[in-house]
Amino acid sequence: MYTQALSIPDGSGQKFAVAQPATEQEKAFQARIDDDGRIEPQDWMPDAYRKTLVRQISQHAHSEVVGMLPEGNWISRAPSLKRKAILIAKVQDEGGHGLYLYSAAETLGASRGDLVDALHAGKAKYSSIFNYPTLNWADVGVIGWLVDGAAIMNQIPLCRCSYGPYARAMIRVCKEESFHQRQGYEALLVMMRGTEKQREMVQNAVDRWWWKCLAMFGPADNDSPHSAQATQWGIKRISNDDLRQKFVDATVPQAKVLGVTLPDPDLKWNEERQHYDFGQIDWDEFWSTVEGNGPCNKERLATRVKAHNDGQWVREAALAHARKQQERAIKEAA
């Protein structure tokens, strides 16, 4: 799973200008990136690079963790034991992806506790796609096919990100993510071969999720102020609009095989561009959700905070047990 418009400023009014390397250290750093080299945790890096990465990687991690909630809702209601097992495995993967990413953020000197606290205090962003409800079983299939599909499209270039630990985490995530997309598409195929009612459920879910998925790629290039700096730093390899186009081009034929229509009257093949044209995304709705006014923002955060608080005694008990073991070992050695 994945976050849209990675690295949305957590506060408002942040401006990003492309900083030109001035000092010898900065020049050497930029030269290594221009040479397609990688930056590792102990290497020197500009503060702004470090901050941008901590923000982006932690938003990404939060998205993985919050992303467990919409699908987790369906584990107990999956239509068969097979689908339940698949869904549990997928949700467990998302939790693992969160961990890989928090680990990558920690290599930059961030503390996981602080990052999680920021999420729970509502100060950190996560992908707004998870602030929409999963109304029926077809939503779970559509999340796999479209949301994870968009995520893969976005995450593959991140496997070549200039920051080594982030890139390595993304390689692992992408390997696992491919099952997520395929299981979703296959679950929808099964429904499309079912009753008229089931086909309607699939179409209904596609209608509700399509535009949200297109928005996951983030604002248009000319409205994405920090993209230029992220590109110069080798964090961003492909622009939002190019990725979105790739996603549309890949998805249209898949929708055809599935037998659903994508809810966009302007969607059509452009022979000249050799790409599909598509309509306008409702950015006001997107930003409103990012700002916290989506249908499920409050519910998602409250569920997350409750899960964390409910687990507090487990974390404390594990520490108490570890301390007791240590004391016993010291006593025995004495």
């Binding site: 467990q92 680990s103 594990a318 073991q325």
Partner: peptide, 23 residues
């Protein structure tokens, strides 16, 4: 292959199994 937080060695092993060897 990565890192994780755990209270003690036994828990670290257990969690490493869950996180890094699911496949």
């Amino acid at each position: 292959c990565g890192s994780l937080h755990a209270a003690d060695p036994a828990q670290a092993l257990h969690m490493a199994r869950d996180v890094y060897t699911r496949r």
